[in-house]
Amino acid sequence: MSLDPATVRRIAKLARIRVDEGQVEALRADLNSILGWIEQLNEVDTDGVAPLTGGTQMALRLREDAVNDGGMAEAVLANAPDRDGDYFAVPKVVE
């Protein structure tokens, strides 16, 4: 599979990373060479192999339903690049 410039633009959009037109070709070449190299995995016979997702094979631990966090709006907002009162602020969104 080989990336075309439109795909590079599309995934950049999905990833919300601005890619200027002048960068597209270099990125395309880079990504293609990495993807080409990755395709060595096609040599591996994985028929009937169950995918391994996590780093460990334990079962999930659950926590009890108790309120023991939150109540610290100031700490949550302290790093905000823009805030208004106790809200985070962003450019107006039209739904």
């Binding site: 995995l41 994985t46 169950a50 391994l52």
Partner: peptide
């Protein structure tokens, strides 16, 4: 595919 190879 990668997850399957990871299993192997």
């Amino acid at each position: 595919k990668a997850q399957k190879v990871r299993a192997l």
